[in-house]
Amino acid sequence: MDNDYFEDLDIDPAYTKAHELPAAHYDYCRFKGLNLEQANLAGFKFTDCSFVDCNLSLANLQGCSFQDVKFQNCKLLGLHFEQCNAFNLSFSFQDCQLNHSSFYQLKLKKTGWINCKMQEVDFEGCDLSQADFSGSDLMLSNFQFCQLEKADFRTAVNFSIDPEANKIKGAKFSLSGLPGLLQKYQLSIQG
């Protein structure tokens, strides 16, 4: 096996005790239970990989490539996803913590953030068309100049979205989410 290419591996804490996680292209690999907090992932490439129960908080993502990557029950605090390689950038998140992370100006059509804690996340200038925020907590997250067409916010909570500063045609909201759309008007909505 080539030193800079790994395919179809299960990488867990036992594996990383015996092997250092080298900067490489990982294809169809499964990462489970790893603590990669503050890790330097610059230049790494992950294609069709999954991360389960991992901590990547404050990792360096400069030039890192995520293509069809799934994150489940991961801690991803303070990450700057806008520093990733934008070519074919695609991922999904389920039951993850992404507080204080940034997706500034990324094209993230159809991305799913399901049941995630996403407080104070920066989405400014993002294309989030058809994105799914089901069950996610978006308290103090920044949605400015976003394309939110057909995005699903029906079960998301604590969001504040200015319809005048974003494109929201066809976006889905529940009645309980209306205060998040009208917050800037400082209305008292009851019932």
Rank of each mutant, 00 (worst) to 15 (best):
C49G: 02
A131Y: 01
V121R: 03
F31C: 07
C96Y: 06
L182G: 02
Q94K: 14
N158P: 01
P13S: 08
F93H: 01
I168E: 05
Q144D: 11
L76S: 09
Y15M: 04
G125N: 00
Q97G: 09
Q67K: 14
S101H: 02
F44A: 09
S141P: 04
F173E: 07
C146W: 06
D122T: 08
P22T: 09
G191W: 10
I189E: 04
D53A: 10
N35V: 09
L187D: 00
N55K: 08
D122Q: 04
W113N: 10
G135H: 01
Y26W: 07
A23G: 04
A18T: 12
K150S: 11
K167I: 12
S65L: 13
A18E: 15
Q130R: 11
G177K: 01
V52H: 12
F173C: 09
L56C: 06
L128Y: 11
F81V: 04
K117D: 03
Q72K: 13
L181Q: 10
K32G: 00
N60L: 13
Q144C: 07
L89Q: 05
Y5K: 12
L36R: 13
P22W: 05
S134M: 03
F44C: 10
D12S: 08
K169D: 15
Y104I: 04
L36F: 11
L76M: 14
D2K: 14
S90C: 09
N35I: 10
K169S: 12
F143A: 04
H25M: 08
D53F: 12
K167G: 01
L76Y: 12
E82K: 13
F93P: 00
F145S: 14
F133C: 01
W113C: 09
N99E: 11
A171N: 03
F31G: 07
D132K: 08
C146V: 01
H25R: 05
D132M: 05
T47I: 15
Q183V: 06
N158W: 03
S57Y: 02
A18F: 09
H100Y: 13
Y5C: 05
Q105C: 08
Q105F: 05
L9V: 06
F51V: 01
S129G: 05
L106E: 02
W113Q: 08
C54E: 00
G180W: 09
Y28W: 07
Q38H: 14
L34D: 08
S57T: 09
L108K: 05
D8C: 11
M139Q: 11
A156G: 00
C49T: 08
L56P: 02
G78A: 03
Q147W: 04
N115D: 12
K70M: 03
F145Y: 09
I114R: 03
E20W: 00
L187I: 07
D68F: 08
N115G: 06
D95Y: 14
D48L: 13
C74T: 06
